[in-house]
Design a protein around this nucleic acid. Structure first.
Length: 588
RNA sequence: GCCGGCUUAGCUCAAUUGGCAGAGCAACUGAUUUGUAAUCAGUAGGUUGUAGGUUCGAUUCCUAUAGCUGGCACCA
């Protein structure tokens, strides 16, 4: 298929490509704008790009509120216009001409005034838009689209500016693709950790504590198992563990710089007329531990891990289930090392993270965030060197990464590990940060081979990031059907008949308990089908049915979650299988 | 925090134009003793988020407020 570029050239592209999707969606956003300008002549348009899964357009409706009914109306108009199959015409204009065309639209005027290069406009019928393309040759292929939702969005992404109405939509080349996409959106909703968290009694959030999650017994089991694994991994990688106080005095936060920079996001309180703060981060406490004794160059690297319970005052509108909360547990660690140990430490960390995430089958991407344009501390030479070290560590250990320019912390560059939730939203989980600030501020040192005091290099790192967020991602990743090693209940035992089979069932439950399995026995006076269904609804990995045959042979008939077939094996084999599943952390 | 939307039984949702708050599931009680995704019958369950207002009368309309939610901004 053919598309037209900004310079007027025609390019042949493949219909299934990402580029083709983008062009279609961009042209659909123009079609939507055309429909809107017919229905609401006063509407002024801002940005209207294609995005990952569709498109949006930001529109100033002069304070008129747009509802779902309006969306339906706009969609109808779009179909009407598209059926005419208008040509999409590109034209080059001068700045003066452009300003004349868009004189009624302050947003486009602002954009035009910011353009130094060639200005192009694309038009279809009566509708003209300032645009760099690329576009379809006509509106003819635009048939299979849907407007999805309405949102508010600040002009140019700045909360100081006016908020426009953003309409999101998605557009595809065939009805089948559109249907598939909408079906996938539904599936994502079914996997939403907030929904599953409720269904499976994992956690709750009370209106008495917005953003402060409660862990219910099932969720706590899951969490404890995760943390148990986490602890073992850290022991394997030679970490020590500490725990530092949740409340510390204002002076400490002044030294660390948090009191000045981030007080708005900190919960503060007075104790005996003195200012204190609830920790939003663990580093200052960790540093006090480091400073509690004198360290020799021989002691380094020191790797100190802490499951730190932090509180941050997040904006009310930012709260989102377990993904964005006001209190969470960071699987934090601080590594203090010499300069010559740094690269190896980072490579080890990269491998460590790889090992952790792969246990869950989670895909991730790495971003290297570099020095911010402004507000950074320390000298550029050290920054450049540090960035190079992070880069080199990725290269040496064979990890691909993307550079995220200017997004580093003010105190140093970092590697961020991003995981996707079921909605396709990206969440930062792991991080490795090089800190060129705190060791100095806190006057940290170790004694080198000449007996001199030397400042150590400090790495902040979190692998899961937030235990809460990570579990949220796990819930969605597994759609609530956890592998045995994590599942709140691993085995559900169903006796066919309580008069004849209950004894063996109880014997099994006792045995499983001794083995450390989490097993339940459902001896309620319900039909087997009913109890089996309950077992599936609760997403219990293994459901075993005990009847005459099993009692006679001392065997077990089991069925895995989500599978229809039943397998009968000896009790010994069953135990061997469960042990292996748990040990190997197998997910079915 | 900002722009929209939502809030009815433990859960999922109904309730005509403003006119007696209702169902399924879960719970409880009883019967049923069950071989792979819902046995039957009954009982109980509510200050319709909260506080005001309009009205003879409010789940329904208005105002405020809290929480949730789709985005935006924010995320050290």
């Amino acid at each position: 298929m053919k598309i037209q570029l900004q310079d007027g050239s025609i390019k042949e592209i493949e219909k299934g490509s990402k580029e083709a999707f983008d062009v279609l969606n961009h042209s659909t956003s123009h079609l939507m704008a055309e429909a809107i300008s017919e229905l609401y002549p006063e509407a002024k348009f801002g940005f209207g790009p294609s995005i990952e899964e569709g498109f949006y357009y930001d529109i100033d409706f002069n304070d008129q509120v747009i509802t779902d009914d309006d969306l339906a109306k706009i969609e109808k108009k779009m179909h009407e216009i598209a059926s005419k199959g208008q040509k999409i015409i590109r034209k080059e204009v001068s700045k003066k001409e452009a300003l004349e065309i868009f004189k009624k639209n302050p947003y486009k005027v602002e954009l035009i005034n910011g353009i130094d290069s060639q200005i192009t406009i694309f038009s279809q019928g009566e509708f003209v838009d300032l645009c760099a393309g690329p576009h379809l040759l006509s509106t003819e292929p635009i048939k299979h689209f849907k407007l999805l939702n309405i949102a508010g969005a600040y002009w140019r992404g700045d909360s100081k500016n006016k908020q426009l109405t953003r309409i999101y939509g998605t557009s595809w080349y065939s009805d089948e693709e559109l249907k598939n996409y909408l079906q996938m959106v539904e599936e994502r909703k079914r996997r939403d950790h907030r929904l599953l968290g409720k269904q499976l009694d994992l956690f709750m959030i009370s209106e008495y504590g917005p953003g402060f999650p409660f862990w219910l017994p099932n969720g706590m089991t899951l969490r404890n198992n995760l943390i148990d694994f986490w602890t073992k991994q850290h022991i394997k990688y030679d970490y020590e563990f500490v725990d530092t106080p949740i409340i510390l005095s204002r002076e400490l936060w002044e030294i660390s710089g948090h009191w000045d920079h981030y007080r708005q996001n900190m919960y503060t309180l007075k104790i005996d007329d003195k200012d204190f703060a609830i920790k939003p981060m663990n580093c200052p406490g960790g540093i006090l531990v480091y400073k509690n004794s004198i360290h020799s160059y021989r002691d380094l690297p020191i790797r100190m891990a802490e499951l730190g319970h932090v509180h941050r005052h997040e904006a009310s509108g930012a709260l989102n289930g377990l993904f964005r909360v006001r209190t969470f547990t960071q699987d934090d660690a601080h590594i203090y090392c010499r300069r010559d140990q740094l690269t190896d430490e980072i490579i080890t960390l990269l491998n460590f993270y790889e090992e952790m995430y792969s246990v869950f089958g989670l895909k991730y991407s790495i971003e290297l965030s570099t020095r911010p344009e402004e507000g950074y501390i320390g000298d550029i030479e050290v920054w450049n060197q540090s960035e190079k070290i992070l880069e080199e560590a990725c290269r040496k250990s064979g990890h691909e990464f993307k550079i995220n320019p200017g997004d580093g912390a003010f105190y140093g560059p970092k590697l961020d590990f991003k995981l996707k939730d079921s909605m396709g939203r990206i969440w930062q989980c792991g991080t490795i940060q090089l800190d060129m600030n705190l060791p100095h501020r806190f006057g940290m040192y170790y004694i080198d081979e000449n007996g001199e005091k030397v400042e150590p290099i400090m790495l902040h790192r979190a692998c899961l990031g937030s235990v809460e967020r990570f579990i949220g991602i796990l819930i969605e990743h597994y759609a609530g059907a956890f592998p045995e090693w994590l599942a709140p209940v691993q085995i559900n035992i169903l006796p066919v008949n309580n008069n004849y089979h209950l004894n063996y069932a109880k014997e099994l439950k006792d045995l499983f308990k001794k083995k450390g399995y989490r097993a339940t026995l459902d001896a309620s006076e319900e039909k087997l089908g009913y109890r089996l269904r309950n077992s599936q609804v609760k997403k219990i990995p293994l459901t075993i049915v005990i009847g005459d045959n099993e009692v006679k042979d001392r065997s077990v008939t089991y069925r895995r979650y989500g599978q229809k077939d039943q397998v009968t094996i000896s009790l010994e084999e069953f135990i061997k299988m469960v042990d292996k599943d748990i040990e190997m952390k197998i997910a079915y």
